[in-house]
Structure formats: structure tokens, C-alpha cells
Amino acid sequence: MSQITHKGKSITTYGHLPEKGEKAPHFELLRSDLSVATLQDFKGKRVIMNIFPSIDTFVCATSVKNFSERASELNNVVVLNISRDLPFAQERFKKDNEIANCENLSDFRERNFGKDYGLEMIDGAWEGLLSRVVIVLDENGKILHTEQVKDIDKEPDYLEALKPLL
């Protein structure tokens, strides 16, 4: 279990993030058309997994915009924005904000991703949502970088996340 904070109050997450050098765990998440996306679908691409509680919060929305913009300058990189928002809300946000260079994926149906990756919040005001995490993968799904943001109200360290991809 890991500890993060929200507005100064402690929150416990389900477990621990997978470690740098490990192969990322398999996942099945929903795309905006409700089809299933798996980790295997992104084999051969470098992946930034931008994981957050809800697209309808300021910090989460900011991270989507920042990673989308920064990844557009990198070769063979896809940004996966992952939350438990409904796929329709994720797609609305993407269209309303003219976001490109990314794919929105939802863990609302199966709810296994947050447990398998050790980042689901299991208490506090946002219990049941995903904590703010960035995981960067190489073309074969090996983990190059992880960050679980210690204060859910803060943005991730974009520069550190992008370093392994430069």
C-alpha cells in the first residue's frame, strides 16, 4: 500500500506501482467506442500512461493537454489517458479541447486496472478512483519510468516522464 494526500488528508492506494525494468501488467480498458484496448495493442510504440481520477477536474485536464502537446514532438509515442470516467465524457473532453496525439481509455467497467497497477484509492474522498500516476513504457511494454504523484492536487513531473523518450 502507498500513501498519497488530497487537501492535506492521507489517502491509501491499493498497492504499489509496478517497478522500473518490469514488464507492464496486461490490461483491458474501454475505448470511446466501447471496444476493448489491451496493452498488446500498443506493442511497437512507446507509451505514456497518464492516469488520473477524473477528466473533469482542472489538474487532470491540464495533464491531458500537456502530455498531448509534448508527445506530439516525439517519434513513435502514444499517450494513453486512463481514468474511470465514462468513455463518452473522455471523448467529449477530447473533442471540446481539440486534443490529438492520444487515446482515452476507461477502467469504469471491469475496474481491474487500478488494482493490477496498485494505484486505486481505497479510502478518502476519492475512494474507488485512480490516483494520479504516470508510467512510461518502451516498445515492448517494459517500464522505463513511474511516478505516483504524492499530492493528488499537483501535476506530474512532465520533464522526468519524458526523459526516457528523448
Rank of each mutant, 00 (worst) to 15 (best):
I51C: 08
R46G: 09
V64F: 06
V59F: 05
S63M: 09
N66D: 13
I51Q: 10
K45D: 14
N66C: 14
R46K: 11
K65F: 00
V36C: 10
N50C: 11
T62G: 10
L34Y: 11
N66L: 01
R46D: 00
T57W: 06
C60L: 03
G44P: 01
N66Q: 11
R46A: 13
K65G: 04
V47L: 03
S35R: 08
T38M: 15
V36K: 05
C60Y: 02
D41T: 12
V47G: 09
N66R: 03
V36G: 14
F58R: 10
N66H: 08
F42H: 07
K43A: 12
D56L: 06
A37W: 12
V64G: 08
P53S: 10
Q40I: 13
C60R: 01
S63G: 15
K65C: 03
N50Q: 13
F52R: 05
A37P: 05
T57M: 05
S54L: 11
T62L: 08
G44R: 08
D56G: 11
K65H: 12
A61C: 10
V36A: 13
V64L: 01
S54Y: 01
V64R: 06
A37M: 13
Q40R: 15
C60D: 07
T38L: 14
G44W: 01
V59C: 05
L34A: 08
I55L: 15
K45L: 07
S54C: 07
T57F: 02
F52L: 05
M49K: 03
I51D: 07
F52P: 00
S54G: 01
P53Y: 03
K45V: 11
G44E: 07
S63Q: 14
F58Y: 05
N50D: 08
L34W: 08
L39T: 05
V36F: 15
V47S: 12
S63P: 04
T38H: 12
K43L: 02
D41I: 14
C60F: 09
K65S: 03
T62V: 13
L39P: 09
M49H: 06
V36E: 14
T62W: 13
F42Y: 14
N66I: 14
V36R: 13
D41M: 15
D56R: 01
L39S: 15
K45F: 04
V47Q: 07
R46P: 10
S63F: 04
D56H: 00
A61V: 10
A61H: 03
A61W: 02
P53V: 04
V47A: 08
V64D: 08
M49R: 04
A37L: 12
L39E: 15
F42Q: 10
M49Q: 08
L34H: 04
Q40G: 09
L39I: 00
A61K: 09
P53R: 00
M49F: 05
